[in-house]
Amino acid sequence: MAVIDALTQSTRPGVGAGRAAPSERWGRLALLAPSIILLIGVFVVPLAIMLVRTFTDPHPGLENLTWYLGDATQRRVLVRTFTTAAKVTAVCLLLGYPYAYAMVAAGPKLRAVLTLLVLVPFWTSLMVRTFAWVILLQDNGPIQRALAGIGLDNLHLIRSNVGVIIGMSQILLPFLVMPLYAVMSTIDRRLVLASSSLGARPITSFFRVWLPLSLPGIGAGSLMVFISSLGFYVTPALLGSPSDALVSQQIYTQVSGLLQWGRAGAMGLVLLVATFAILAVLMLSIRRAARRQTRQAEDATS
C-alpha cells in the first residue's frame, strides 16, 4: 500500500544532505545496517546472480536474450502475459472505480465497513483464495453448473485464460481500490456542486470534473495492478493451463525443469525492465500532474 502512497503523493523537493555530527552518522548507520544487510544479501545479490547468469550461462554473450526475443513461442507467451495483465487491470478498474466512489460518498460507519471489506481479503492468504477459485471454477463445479443452468453449456473456466483473469482480478482489486480511494478522498466535492450550479447535468459534471480529478488515482492503481499481474505465479499456475502459460510459469519451468538458468535470467530481465519502464512512466506522469497542479494553484492565488 505504501508504494501507492509514495506514488500518489506529489513529489517532495530533494533533501539536501547537511553535515551531521559524526556520532549521529554512526547512530544512523547502526539503525539502517540490519535492513540494508538483509536487502543486499537476500534481494540485491539474488537479482545480480540472475543478471550475471543471463549473460554467462551456459556461454558468455547475448545468446539467452537473442533466443528469448527471437523464439516465436516465447514471444507469444510474452504478449499473452501483457494482454492478460491488461484484461485484469480493465476488470479491476470496472469494478473498483464505482466501489472507491462509494467509499468516498458513504458516511463514516459505512466507509469503515467498505474499507474493511477490501482490506481483509487483501491480507487473507493468496493460497487460500486461489484454492477457493480452483473449487469454484472446476469442471462440474458450482459456477460451471450455474452457467449451464442458464444455457451456457460446456464453458471451461479452469485451465483457461478466463479462469486466470477471474482469480487474478479478485486478488488484485484492493491494489486498485486503495490508491483510488486515497485520491478521491482529497477531491474537493464543492467543485462538483459548483459545476452543477453552473448548469452542468450530473453526467457532465462527472465526466468534466470528477473523472479528471481522479485520474492520478486511476493511473497509480491500474499500474500497480498491471505490474503485479506481470509477475504473478501461483494463481496462473493453478488456474491456467500449461498451453497458455505466462512468463512467470516459463521462468519456473526453465529453472526447475530444464536447469536453463541463463534463459530464466533473460526472461526475468525482460520482466524487470518492463516493470520498471512502466513504473518510470507512471512516476513521470504523476510528477508532471503535480507540477501542473501547483502551477494552477499559483495562478489562482496570484
Binding site: V42, F43, P46, G231, G268
Partner: peptide
C-alpha cells in the same frame, strides 16, 4: 530499496535466491 521488494516480481528474486 526498502520498498523495492513490493514492486519487483517475486519469481525473479526467488530464482536468484
Amino acid at each position: 530499496l526498502v520498498l523495492a521488494p513490493m514492486i519487483v516480481p517475486v519469481i525473479v528474486v526467488a530464482v536468484g535466491l
